[in-house]
């Protein structure tokens, strides 16, 4: 393969048809930017949702009068539940220390005894399981229930349910949006490429007449599509990153803290993007351009 010749053909034709090339670059830019924005938003929402879910705690308060045996049974029970991710024992002293830190020294000074119960703070693996796990402690003898109630086990029951519903809905919505925009990007790009090749079908016809093989004709077009896609997608990736960065800065300066926007992790490996979200986007754009050229050429290359 004569890479030099093909590259010079590709660049030459982009220079000559720069209006078309610009149109293609802008198309790729817009569609990848939108796709990227959707993906980044989804990632950030997921991140936010996860951090919200992680804050869903079950607090199990222990009776002051519980025997050591009862306490040991409770701890064993916690250890035996597979849905529990982690737990922490908060002793009466620790509880008081926290209380002091939160409400100040003065209130605590006047207390003759420590009225705060010891407790376990339990985190479950999946926020959807909070309810079921919490129920298992309702009737434990070590739990500090008022008679006839389960108020020794505290968790944000309704809040959790509503929140989970919202997060799941948003998640599904984002998946649909991703699909729609990915499809739109593919269609837009392939249409643009097809238009630019249609404008040059005579050229292709002449190449065939002088005996160029299909690949000989194809390579410059494929390279051109690749370069076009790459430029558009790289600019789009930069743009998405910039927007995200600006948004993160703005959120940080305002006091909305429940959404933690990730800024730098997009360039390299993170979460569901083994090669980083933005590089993936760039490669995707380039591949789409190359593939688009190839598909669009097909009808002109039938011998």
């Amino acid at each position: 393969m004569r890479l030099g010749f093909f590259l010079s053909e590709a660049f030459g034709s982009m220079r000559r048809n720069w209006v078309m090339a610009m149109a293609a670059v802008i198309t790729v830019f817009i569609s990848t930017a939108i796709l990227g924005a959707v993906l980044v938003t989804r990632d950030n929402l997921n991140q936010g949702a996860t951090s919200l879910k992680n804050r869903v705690l079950i607090e199990v308060f222990i009776k002051d009068g519980a025997t050591d045996e009862q306490k040991a049974t409770l701890e064993q029970r916690i250890q035996s539940i597979p849905e529990i991710k982690s737990y922490q024992y908060i002793s009466k002293d620790e509880a008081l220390r926290r209380f002091r830190k939160r409400f100040g020294e003065r209130i605590v000074q006047n207390l003759p005894i420590n009225p705060l119960p010891a407790s376990y703070e339990i985190q479950v693996k999946d926020a959807n399981q909070v309810d079921g796990v919490a129920r298992q402690f309702f009737d434990d003898p070590a739990v500090d229930n008022d008679p006839g109630t389960h108020n020794g086990v505290k968790y944000a029951r309704e809040t959790v349910r509503k929140m989970l519903g919202t997060i799941n809905l948003v998640g599904i919505g984002m998946w649909i949006a991703t699909g729609v925009f990915a499809l739109a990007a593919v269609l837009l790009i392939s249409t643009t490429v097809r238009l630019s090749i249609f404008a040059r079908r005579r050229e292709v016809e002449i190449m065939r007449l002088v005996g160029a093989t299909n690949w000989f004709i194809r390579w410059p077009f494929v390279l051109e599509g690749f370069i076009t896609g790459l430029i558009g997608a790289v600019v789009a990736a930069g743009f998405v990153w910039l927007c995200n960065w600006a948004l993160a800065n703005w959120l940080e300066s305002s006091d909305i803290d429940f959404l933690q926007i990730r800024v730098f992790s997009m360039w390299w490996q993170s979460g569901s993007w083994p090669a980083g979200l933005l590089p993936t986007l760039a490669v995707l754009g380039a591949a789409l351009g190359a593939l688009g050229s190839m598909v669009a050429l097909r009808r002109y290359l039938k011998t």
Binding site: G12, S13, R16, R202, E203, E205, I206, M207, R208, L209, V210, G211, A212, T213, N214, F216, T303
Partner: peptide
């Protein structure tokens, strides 16, 4: 696949020249 090879052995001249314009 062999058609390009055939065409390389045939020179062609057309009424409308069919030159690459660029």
């Amino acid at each position: 696949r062999k058609v390009p090879l055939l065409r390389r052995n045939i020179g062609c001249v057309f009424q409308d020249f069919k030159l690459l314009p660029n």
